[in-house]
Design a protein around this nucleic acid. Sequence first.
DNA 1: CAGCCATTTGTGACCGGTCACATTCACCGT
DNA 2: ACGGTGAATGTGACCGGTCACAAATGGCTG
Lengths: 332, 332
Amino acid sequence: MPSIRDVAAAAGVSYQTVSRVLNDSPRVRPETRTAVLAAIERLGFRPSRAARALSLGRARGITVVTSNTVLYGYATTLQGMEEAARAEGLAMGIRVVESAAPAEVKQAVDYVSDASAGGVVVIAWDPMGIAVLEALPDDVPAVAVVEPAAPDRGRVAIALDERRAAADATRHLLELGHRTVHHVAIPSEGGPGGRLAGWRDALAQGGAEVPEVLGCGWDIKSAYAAGRRLAAEPEVTAILCGNDDIAQGVRRALYDAGKDVPGDVSIVGFDDIPGSAYATPALTTVRMDFAGLGRACFHAAVAELTGQAQPEPVLVPPSLVVRESTAPPPRP
Amino acid sequence: MPSIRDVAAAAGVSYQTVSRVLNDSPRVRPETRTAVLAAIERLGFRPSRAARALSLGRARGITVVTSNTVLYGYATTLQGMEEAARAEGLAMGIRVVESAAPAEVKQAVDYVSDASAGGVVVIAWDPMGIAVLEALPDDVPAVAVVEPAAPDRGRVAIALDERRAAADATRHLLELGHRTVHHVAIPSEGGPGGRLAGWRDALAQGGAEVPEVLGCGWDIKSAYAAGRRLAAEPEVTAILCGNDDIAQGVRRALYDAGKDVPGDVSIVGFDDIPGSAYATPALTTVRMDFAGLGRACFHAAVAELTGQAQPEPVLVPPSLVVRESTAPPPRP
DNA sequence: CAGCCATTTGTGACCGGTCACATTCACCGT
DNA sequence: ACGGTGAATGTGACCGGTCACAAATGGCTG
């Protein structure tokens, strides 16, 4: 592997001049630049990311801290970040935190505190991410993906407008004539700007009663269990589900209990995962722009890393997609 | 950030002794080691990954080259690798290659050729991965996830036994009494050890006719189109689908054409994604151990990186999961 | 033509680890 | 008492970039 010294020798200049060309400094004569670029090309030189990180004190590129990489929302956000990073030729690393246990959080924090981690993006939709965010030293250049209106700790925060998404979906159901809308919630809905809040907003606005929330995990199995419970209550005619996978579990539970969707019960999901359009019935859902969120995160992280941090929080809007799983309630 | 020199001063030893403790060399007196560890603890010292990578010539940790991070098989393989990497305290990076265009392949190859990429895992299920694998210089420590029996170019290769998986699924359908099994194939089935081959094996073994294969893309929309075509042919009673998402699209197409699953047509998927158990009808599928595959990849990559490469190819076995989407063919 | 300034280029040190080799010291056998 | 041996530790150089500063070059003014 040739180094800048080799390139310098080949081009008949000093290594510092090569460095200047690499960082396209204006203080280089055009002919010199051309000569250096030719030498770079000829030798197949590529600058070493490790050396740069060591010298600069921080790597370019970003590392994402997340509790999950497979669930649609997380995976798609990651994808958005990766695309944006790749477009700028930067590296993306991933560090998963599976629990909020202090030891594991500390490990993750130590990990991203290292210079070679570069800019850090913490996905703080859940207790693991939030714990990492709180434990992160101030000198680590980081931005956070959070629930909107989550308490801001001086970090740049980026969020999907989940409150509006939930409100839109709930309003859609009320407008179809349902007396109220039940809700099966996933673990990450807590905050004041979250889905739960949006759901309550719309119910209050529509003058509807606010039923008890059914919490469930990320797994479809617990969604199925929640669905069985709701299926047993005859007055339930509309269910807002925490995401599309949850909706699938609930739908199956209703089916197994002999209830038709949307004839007896309407359901709405969140996220618009690829399969939802092809489910039977095709799922009405709120599409969230996770990829756009990821891109925004990347750019915010790079800004933070290079010191041009503009601490303007970003809010990415959702859009309701109406399909077959919602209809007016059955006539009694 | 304290360096080993600071630790050395605090412990009253030389920096080299600190380095020895960090790499647990046996050439250190126990008391000295204790003193150094105490100083490390006291100062909150963490070794710099960048400095290590620069000095060593290669980073520890791995970088994965893949064409996709969201599709279930890819995402779960990545997850398996990340878990294994985290268990050893190592970093994992991701580099996506979206097309097999020479320029993009070259960029990716350059990227992972850098010392800070560490060990490299190439997911070579598709043309993008294969192109990267072929362009990768020999001095890059890499392993490949491939289709079984893909031409081996001296790299350690790890694979799922897709041929067996496809054969198991096809045999299951034949044993139910279907005259033959149609096949909707995803883009990555080509090789001699792939799904296509397994499907042909089982048909040949069962003395069944080999129908024309319908190719489709990764998107459910094209699966739906393929499903509509098959729905129009009355003699089709059993369909092997390239993966579970494809199966969902095919199922919807059959439904829209007025065909019942499994009453009129049986379908089988691949992968056993989480939703398949809760689809209606619950999908019969072949579960693939992607996470196990990912773990195996990581360990092979580390072995390659540290020079203890054992070039034994690994073959991860599948398992058939029978649910509701398969049944005997309708009586004429 | 000296003097000054701006532009372009070069030199030395440094980032934080590791390697190869030198040194110190205690203990052994003869 | 003395050289030999092995274990424990220390020293200098190096990996490949970047920074701060020095020096050479050239054009202009007075």
